[in-house]
């Protein structure tokens, strides 16, 4: 939907301008289809649950999701007992009756525990780049679902880049340095990723084929893991999406009927005038 709209808006270049400009050049995002896309798209909750497992096992050590609470996991189809168990697995900070700082097992009403005490700690532990919170990541990036999907699979061996890719990479370097002869070079501690703006990302490759084993036996190659993860992150970004679309269908149908009636009334009233 978003894609169609962006394309449709090309005629309204005025409106589409910011979206296009923010997209930037570089490598095209990988194309795939997510079930939640389109005006009537819904979440694939099996994928969302698998994606939560990927997040929990591979991302949560560095990336917070501070806007989510464990109780929210009920919405992706986990049972109350499962949610309680997930929450209880985590120790959260609290203050006891006597005012002392303690750690207690989490409850469903607790927010997802953040891996770092604060932003400075996160920065210090991660080579100076603090891992962004993932609660809204899909909404916070242009074409966010496809972006995260591509980013997970964008780690590559720089030496294998084609001549055309090279040209794009050198273009980045030229823009960054202002030097027309500059060529692309990696900074230390960075990783080459064709889908990250500037192509150098602090995060080492987080996901590889077979990294997570699903209990339901779903295949676990990198594209599948990435897609499941994105399904989870998309749900986390907008848990009310299905409610929004469902309400929307009813509202639009109602408005069409009302508009039709209003038009008929207007025609009747004006019939004698011209």
């Amino acid at each position: 939907m978003r894609k169609i709209l962006t394309r449709g808006a090309l005629t309204l270049a005025f409106l589409a301008g910011p979206a296009l400009a923010a997209g930037g050049g570089g490598f095209k995002l990988l194309d795939t289809h997510f079930k939640f896309e389109g005006p009537l798209g819904t979440y694939d909750y099996a994928a969302v649950q698998r994606g939560f497992q990927v997040y929990k096992e591979k991302c949560a050590a560095c990336h917070s999701m501070s806007l989510l609470s464990y109780r929210n996991l009920r919405d992706i189809g986990l049972s109350e007992a499962a949610v309680k168990a997930i929450a209880a697995d985590v120790m959260v900070d609290d203050i006891d009756d006597k005012g002392a700082k303690v750690e207690r097992p989490g409850r469903p009403s607790d927010r997802f525990r953040s891996p770092f005490a604060n932003e400075a700690a996160a920065r210090a532990a991660n080579n100076g780049a603090s891992p962004p919170d993932l609660s809204l990541i899909v909404k916070a990036r242009v074409d966010g679902a496809r972006y995260v999907y591509s980013l997970m699979q964008g780690y590559d061996d720089m030496a294998k880049a084609s001549a055309a890719d090279r040209a794009i990479m050198d273009g980045y370097a030229k823009k960054a340095t202002g030097d027309a002869k500059a060529t692309f070079a990696m900074a230390t501690g960075r990783n080459f990723n064709t889908h990250f703006p500037g192509m150098q990302i602090a995060m080492p490759q987080p996901l590889r084929d077979g990294d997570v084993t699903y209990v339901d036996g779903t295949k676990n190659d990198l594209p599948q893991l990435s897609k499941d993860l994105v399904s989870f992150l998309a749900w986390a970004s907008e848990p009310k999406m299905e409610e929004r679309k469902n309400t929307g269908v009813k509202v639009i149908i109602f408005m069409l009927i009302l508009a039709g009636l209003m038009y008929a009334v207007k025609r009747k009233v004006w019939a004698g005038v011209h």
């Binding site: 109602f254 408005m255 009927i257 009302l258 009636l261 209003m262 008929a264 009334v265 009747k268």
Partner: peptide, 19 residues
């Protein structure tokens, strides 16, 4: 027929407003 149309429209609008 006209009156019916008016009443139907007003009723629909009222339902919409209440919802």
């Amino acid at each position: 027929r006209r009156d019916f149309l008016f009443v139907a429209t007003a009723a629909t609008a009222a339902v919409g407003g209440a919802s």
